[in-house]
């Protein structure tokens, strides 16, 4: 059982490697969707620990929002703006992969290293989610397309979600609600914003957004 758990977590972590490898934005979104589904599996495995109402919420959030709605929404934006690939990131993708791998390893390392501090959660949760957070940061920092940033932000949220799953049993429901709201409204607004920016700036590239400086 534990092994299965860890396997799923590692799978989520490794999906970040794929993200950092690929150029195609469609693949990013697919990964997002896959991650959502993996979350769903993790929650299913944790069924016995979580109270029922909370459980239902988590199911809805992972299965419907994370796996379906958000990816669909994002790919709609992609299609609307005719974007399909991330061109010329700040650093070449093979470096990204190496960095992502190192970060993933770092995540494992942290989990191992601070093992004795974990009284109540699985060490791997902590390590992998940290690595996902850092990896998504790296994606945001290295990529140039604004839509990639949004997707990167989603990965960040996923990392945090993974972390929060580790204490899903203790978290009051209101926080999940808040999180849901945040993701929903966040994506909604970010999506609208991407549209707005693309209509104002012609190109969805972050280079255009550097007029405000000192």
């Amino acid at each position: 059982m534990i092994d299965l758990f860890n396997l799923l977590i590692i799978l989520i972590g490794s999906s970040m490697l794929y993200v950092s490898f690929t150029y195609r934005l469609e693949e990013y979104i697919k990964t997002l969707s896959i991650q959502g589904f993996l979350f769903f599996l993790i929650i299913l495995l944790d069924f016995d620990k979580i109270e029922i109402l909370n459980f239902i919420f988590l199911i809805i959030e992972t299965l419907i929002f994370k796996t379906i709605i958000i990816p669909v929404f994002l790919s709609k934006i992609l299609r609307k703006n005719h974007i399909n690939r991330e061109i010329e990131p700040y650093i070449p993708n093979y470096y990204s992969v190496i960095i992502a791998t190192l970060v993933l390893a770092f995540g494992f390392f942290i989990s191992y290293w601070s093992n004795d501090e974990f009284q109540n959660i699985r060490p791997l949760f902590f390590g992998i989610s940290i690595s996902i957070i850092i990896n998504s940061f790296i994606i945001i920092i290295t990529r140039k397309k604004i839509i990639t940033h949004v997707i990167g932000y989603m990965f960040l949220e996923n990392g945090i979600f993974l972390l929060s799953l580790s204490i899903a049993a203790e978290m009051p429901i209101i926080v999940n609600l808040g999180m849901l709201l945040d993701i929903f409204v966040g994506i909604f607004l970010l999506g609208i914003f991407v549209n707005k920016i693309s209509s104002t700036f012609e190109e969805l590239n972050i280079d255009k957004l550097t007029t405000l400086k000192d």
Partner: peptide, 14 residues
């Protein structure tokens, strides 16, 4: 510091 490039801003935080 304030180059206008948002990614750099995030890097500082990171």
């Amino acid at each position: 510091i304030q180059t206008g490039n948002m990614q750099l801003y995030l890097l500082y935080g990171l």
